[in-house]
């Protein structure tokens, strides 16, 4: 058996640590070791984006990163979006604009949206479509996801100026 490695991450503001086999994928660490099942697995080839989480603020595909590589990093998953019992504007946008159907792609999609709006608070439709081009959705046809992200962008700007 290979040597295990101690991994410590800050996950949604909470420290998690465990000794892991180096081949454990980050997505399995998040789902099974940390027990946060909002991050999903939809493919084997880093195409679908259902496993998207933020690693030190950047969206990455957690099925294509080893848990040992994330040692010492700051991770945000869908479970980290809500604050003080309040929905994040992105969550609100997805609800208001019917940006989800089966809900399976939604957590990863929202993580990509969060990263986009962090960099570009007022994205164009094309900016949004390219920013979520690494996230597949089989239900919505993306149109309402675009609207949801626009909704969130507006709401976050209002929040920032208020």
């Amino acid at each position: 058996m290979p040597k295990t490695h101690h991994v410590r991450v800050r996950l949604n503001g909470v420290d998690h640590e465990a000794d892991v086999d180096p081949r454990v994928l980050l997505v399995h660490f998040i789902r099974e070791t940390a027990g946060l099942t909002g991050t999903h697995i939809g493919c084997d080839t880093s195409n679908c984006g259902a496993c998207t989480v933020l690693l030190d603020g950047r969206p990455i595909k957690s099925c294509t990163l080893l848990a040992v590589q994330a040692d010492g990093s700051d991770l945000t998953t869908v479970e980290g979006l809500m604050h003080d019992g309040q929905l994040h504007p992105i969550q609100e946008g997805f609800h208001q604009e019917h940006g989800l159907q089966c809900g399976f792609c939604t957590p990863g999609m929202m993580m990509s949206a969060l990263a986009l709006l962090g960099k570009n608070p007022n994205p164009t439709e094309q900016d949004i479509r390219w920013a979520i081009s690494g996230n597949l959705c089989r239900c919505t046809g993306y149109q309402n996801i675009v609207k949801a992200i626009q909704y969130a962008g507006r709401k976050m700007q209002q929040g920032a100026s208020a």
Partner: peptide, 9 residues
Amino acid sequence: IADPQVRNL
């Protein structure tokens, strides 16, 4: 190249 998440790594 690939997509935004892949380009981050």
